[in-house]
Nucleic acid binder design. Structure first.
Length: 209
DNA sequence: TCATTAACACGGG
DNA sequence: CCCGTGTTAATGA
């Protein structure tokens, strides 16, 4: 377990902090599609990702959802950090995109460790990247047409799954983007003709990204 | 104009 | 047969 922590965070934190993390953190492994937190739940732990990926998204009263960002190994959730500083209820929902290993650290530690320079940098850096990703999410909702949103969705998937052949159905894409399958099929067909992707049954091969 | 809904045909597993 | 896919027609924003 110790080696896994060092593999992912060793280059970021000094020895003393690494030892504190080892002592305070609980190792946890979740399966794909497992829910990590729901909106309104109290945040007691902050996750440090060791492997895999987590999808973080917002959800409204009707159950409609949109993706905010993905977390990968070496990342932590900025919304959790936010909860430690202010209110403690989660504003977001998080689901494991694939099998994921993480370290659960009690939220009190987050403030204690602010005495470590490397920890402060890590927290600010995390805020920074998450904020940038959220701006991208806003842009795609506000300014991009469906073609653009689908393309961004596919590119994001390629990056986090680390494969250009995505095991996706048109219906699944439609649900994630809050649109209908007819449109997804049409847009994907067009993208195939433009040689951007290659369509197969139950999977999509991304050629340009 | 472009998305949605419903409906249908095609075909691979 | 079931399900994912590709298309069309009607309707609406």
């Amino acid at each position: 377990m110790k080696s896994v922590i060092r593999e992912n965070f060793g280059f970021l934190f000094e020895e003393a902090l690494l030892q504190e993390i080892e002592a305070a953190g609980t190792y946890k492994k979740v399966a794909a599609a497992d829910t990590l937190i729901e909106i309104g739940q109290y945040v007691k732990f902050m996750p440090l990702l060791l492997s895999g990926a987590i999808k973080v998204f917002r959800q409204d009263e009707q159950g409609d959802e949109y993706i905010l960002y993905f977390l990968e190994k070496g990342d932590t959730c900025a919304m959790t950090l936010n909860c430690c500083l202010g209110q403690s209820k989660s504003q977001i929902k998080a689901i494991a995109e694939m099998e994921t290993e993480l370290l659960m650290v009690p939220v009190q530690k987050m403030e204690e460790w602010m005495t470590y320079r490397s920890w402060r940098s890590f927290v600010f850096e995390s805020y920074n990247t998450r904020l940038t990703e959220m701006l991208e999410a806003i842009d795609s909702l506000a300014f991009m047409n469906l073609d653009g949103r689908i393309l961004k969705y596919l590119k994001d998937k390629v990056l986090i799954n680390k494969t250009s052949t995505l095991p996706l159905t048109h219906q699944e894409i439609a649900e994630e983007l809050n649109t209908s399958r007819v449109v997804v099929s049409r847009v994907l067909k067009k993208m195939e003709q433009e040689k951007i992707i290659q369509l197969h049954r139950n999977k999509i091969e991304v050629l340009q990204y």
